[in-house]
Amino acid sequence: MSDTIRHHLTEALLMAYSAGTLPEAFNLAIATHVSMCDACRAAVESYDCVGGALLAETETVDMSASALAATLAMIHAGDAAPPAPAPRRSDVPRPLADYIGGSLADVAWRPVGMGVKQAVLKTSDAATARLLFIPAGAAMPDHSHNGLEMTLVLRGAFFDEEDRFGPGDIELATEADQHTPVADIGEDCICLAVTDAPLKFRRLLPRLAQPFLGI
């Protein structure tokens, strides 16, 4: 699959993921993309290496005199670390499977109009992650956003004004971008979309619901 991915993360986002400064929802999209993309995986490991090099050279702050003894006591007390849970079987990469609790078939979709469905995933408030289901040939609801929007294709494909995005591809759009992604005609499109600026999301939701709820 890897060789078919043409749309990747930026260096800035790879570095921020490694540094650990992004909101959880972005980390989820990045971890999922990296699970599908060798090139970005190698880049993340390289940025981790930068973090290691900085840590090796950083100044030190003295530990307390009893720190080592306390740590060894902690080790002796809990030596049997809990085994990692067995990977669940899923049709999506593991980081995403952990958030949806299984496979795409387990997702609790909610219709938002024009055949489009969504499922908001639980993450920290700083950004919002949701799965979007867009029927073949349909357009994603018209939307704009304040900050960064990250859209990772899981199934099918979509087109924006400039290009096609297939499984594993990630589209990055800023507030400057006016885009109306349209699902490929051949297959329903499922993607993971992440936006920051939660206030914007609240504004988006009524607009999505409007034609259906009649408000």
Binding site: S18, G20, P23, A31, R41, P93, S124
Partner: peptide
């Protein structure tokens, strides 16, 4: 250490790539 920082100081989960 980074994952500990995210967990404790930022109170977030840290999604990691599939190994």
């Amino acid at each position: 250490a980074r994952n500990k920082k995210i967990d404790v100081l930022r109170r977030q989960r840290r999604p990691e790539p599939e190994d």
